[in-house]
Design a protein around this nucleic acid. Structure first.
Length: 207
DNA sequence: ATTGGAGTAGGCGTAAAGAG
DNA sequence: CTCTTTACGCCTACTCCAAT
C-alpha cells in the first residue's frame, strides 16, 4: 500500500543511498532544490502533500532506480540495521553461514549504515565487477532474510555445493528455482530446491 | 573572524486539473 | 467558463560547516 509517509521515506532513502540530501537529489533530477523540503511535505492546513508521478519518474531516472526497488524502500523490510555484518562477495561461501543461514565465522566485519531495521539482515561487499552493471565494485548489497521474494527480485542464494550467489529470481516452482545472472549476459541457471539451503531477497544496496 | 556553499523553512505566484 | 485545489518553482532569510 502506498502511504504518504512511505513515499517520502523512500525519497529520503533513495537520496541517502546515492550519498545525497533530498535537496541535492531534487537538483540532480532537474527539480527545484526545495521540492523535497520537509516543510513542503504537508500543507499549512496539515494536509499531506504528495510528490507527483512526474517528480518520482525524474528521480528514478536520475538515479537509474527501478520502480520496484523504489517501492521496496517504502516498506519496513527494506530498512537496514544501523550496524550489519558484512563479508566480501569475492570470498563468501556457505561456511560463512550457520545452519539457519545466519552470518557465522570470523571473516565478517561490522559496517555502519544510516538507518535501523531488520535484525536478521546482513551485507555483502562487492569486491569485483562480476555483478556489474547491477552492482558496482565497492557497493554493499543488503540482504534481508525476512523479506518476501517475488519474480524479478534480486536475491542471494546458498546452494548445497557451498556456493553463495547474487542473481535475479526468474521463476520459482515447487521443485526448482530459476535465476538469471546480473552481469548483463543474461545467463540462466536452475537450482533444485532440495539443493538450495536458503534464498533471501536483496532489499537494498549502498555505494 | 570571515566567506562561500549547501541545505532548509516558509511565503508567494503559477499552471494544470477537476468540479460545478 | 469560473472557481478551487494542488504540486511545484522562485525567492528570501536563516543555519551550519568547511575553507581561508
Amino acid at each position: 500500500m502506498l502511504t504518504h509517509e512511505g513515499i517520502w521515506t523512500a525519497i529520503d532513502r533513495l537520496a541517502a543511498k546515492h550519498g545525497l540530501s533530498p535537496s541535492a537529489l531534487a537538483r540532480r533530477s532537474g527539480l527545484d532544490p526545495t521540492a523535497f523540503n520537509k516543510s513542503k511535505r504537508c500543507a499549512r492546513s496539515g494536509k499531506a502533500r504528495w510528490p507527483s508521478t512526474e517528480s518520482i519518474a525524474k528521480i528514478l531516472t536520475a538515479t537509474e532506480t527501478r520502480m520496484c526497488d523504489f517501492v521496496a524502500m517504502m516498506h519496513s523490510e527494506a530498512i537496514m540495521p544501523s550496524r550489519l555484518h558484512s563479508v566480501p562477495t569475492g570470498m563468501v561461501n556457505a561456511r560463512h553461514f550457520d545452519e539457519l543461514g545466519r552470518p557465522d565465522g570470523d571473516d565478517w566485519e561490522q559496517v555502519d549504515f544510516p538507518c535501523g531495521g531488520d535484525p536478521a539482515a546482513f551485507a555483502l561487499e562487492v569486491t569485483d565487477d562480476s555483478l556489474a552493471p547491477a552492482f558496482r565494485n565497492g557497493e554493499f548489497i543488503i540482504v534481508c532474510p525476512s523479506a518476501e521474494c517475488r519474480r524479478g527480485d534480486r536475491v542471494a542464494i546458498c546452494t548445497d555445493d557451498g556456493e553463495v550467489l547474487v542473481m535475479e529470481l526468474v521463476r520459482r516452482t515447487a521443485r526448482r528455482v530459476s535465476l538469471r545472472s546480473l552481469n548483463g549476459a543474461g545467463t540462466e541457471r536452475t537450482v533444485d530446491r532440495k539443493n538450495l539451503r536458503w534464498l533471501y531477497r536483496v532489499a537494498w544496496s549502498q555505494y
